[in-house]
Every structure is written in structure tokens, then in C-alpha cells.
Amino acid sequence: MLEYTKKIQEIAGRLLSEGKVEVFIGYAKGTVPMMNHPVVIRDSAKAETLVWDSHCGLNLCNYLTKMKGKIGIVANGCNSRNIVTHILENQITREQLYIVGIPCEGMVDHRAVKRAVGNRELEEVIEEGDTLVVKGRGFREIIKKTDVLQRNCAVCTHRNPVIYDEMLGPPVEEQTGVDQFKDVRMIEEMTPEKKWGFFTRTIAKCIRCYACRNACPLCYCPTCFVDESRPQWVGKSNDPTDTMTFHILRAYHCAGRCTDCGACERVCPVGIPVRQFTKKLNKDALEFFSWEAGLAIDQRPALDTYKPNDYNEFIR
């Protein structure tokens, strides 16, 4: 990991000083443990602020939308897939980008780490190989990284970037045999009443802060449907019906586009597993259309093509 940080700093410095890119987008260490934040640098001298470790769970693609000029960016598997989606959706062009690819072994779930130490206050989290050393007032514990991976990372099957100009290291082995949709199937098997109960409980805590929307690279519309008033699709209060409408519609807008990067869930201040909404649609996209978002730059997404001679009979 450490050597990736070094390499990113070197590359960013080089690209900026040579004028190959005007800005470089990466992560910087946060002020609170495990909370790396995105950083946009224009000066090669600031390249040393860039880091790469297991806490880079925000999606940098969010910052590419309609950017002008040449941009350098770091991208692991899911971020690179969002870059592909961005290119397909005309939010950025391939020519503008210099993509620094990072083979990724998954990000850790900051909440899981806290739970592992009994929700005590953390002062420092140090990454050492496959483990995390977690320190706080009066304690020091060692946690295996694989035990606290973000749930999306634990079932990720696209850890290596699908598009890049330069790779930081050899590709990591892709996980096989993981059951991506175990949780979705569990919900699918519920009776309608149970399902209703499940989702009602799931969103009960929602405060309608829209952090999930803001963290998502797919949500780039000039005016979001939640802000629209003519017609008003959804009420502005946190009435359960409106909240449910928001979550379902947000998920629909991500259908066939979501890369399951997990940013939405990571940023939720009240810890709602919002991926439960998007994952069902990912599953459907895969099962009905053999489609996973952002894998190829020359293929139109499943839900935005129309062919009168489609091979799927139910469409014709």
C-alpha cells in the first residue's frame, strides 16, 4: 500500500510538472482516522498530500462530471468502471483523462472497525500489510483487514481497473466464487409483508440529507427529481412514504449504471444499508441483460439501447 502512495505522488508530480494534466484528483489523509477525503491538486509541489490505503472508499469519479481540460485521476476497479460510465454518458471524454490504475484489495468499513473495538473512540488506525492496528485511549488492538472489509468490497469481482493509462502494480487476483447477491435473494424470498417491513425498518432512520446521492458519481443531473416542484415527485419531509419514494427512485436512476462502489453506504450518516436498493437492480441487470455497468467503453448500457430486432423476446 505504502509503495502505491509513493508511486501516486511521483506520477502526479510528474504529470503536473510536465503539464500533461492540469489537475490531479486523488485522496488525502483525513483529519479523523479512516476518513480519507478526495483532493484536487494543481501544483506538483502538493503531490505529497496524496495517499492510498484501505480508507479510500469515496468515489472520485464524482469530481469528473463536465470537467474541462486534462485531468489525472487515480482509479481502482469500481472507480474505473464509473469513469467508463461517465464517458458513455458524455460527462467526460477519454482524451481528457490520464488514469492511474490501482489494483485494489478492498476498502475497510469504518463502522465495522469501530464495532470491532466495542465502539470505543479511535485515535489512530495504522495499516500494516493485511492487518489494521487500532489505537485509542488505553487500548491497542490488531484487526484482520478481511474481517472489516466494506460489504461491497467483500463480494467485489472487479478489483482491477478496466481502463487506465498506467498501472501502479500487477493486477490482483479477482475474487471468484463470491456470492454477490446472497442478501438480495434473501429479500426476494420474503413475503410482500415481510419485504415491506424490512424496507420500512431499513429507511426508518433516514434524515433525507441526500449524502448518498451526493456521494454517488451517477447523480449529476442539473436538477435532481427530489428538488423538482413541478411536478413534485416526492414530498420534502421525512414522511416514510416520501422517504421510500426517494430511495426507490434513486435506485431506479442507478439501474444498469451502478458499479456497487459503496460510496453511498459509506457516507450515510445514520448507517442505512442503501445498497440494498441498488443491488437488486444490479442483479436484475445481470440476470436479464447479462449486463454489468462500466466494463466496456464501446458498449451502450443495457437500459439505453433500443433495437427492433433485440434478441430478448420479451422486448420485441
Binding site: K66, L88, E89, N90, Q91, Y220, C221, P222, T223, L303, D304
Partner: peptide, 8 residues
């Protein structure tokens, strides 16, 4: 004004 140029 509302268009996000996504091209769908």
C-alpha cells in the same frame, strides 16, 4: 437547462 447530456 435541465439536460445532463447523458445521451440516453
Amino acid at each position: 437547462l435541465y439536460c445532463s447530456s447523458c445521451g440516453i
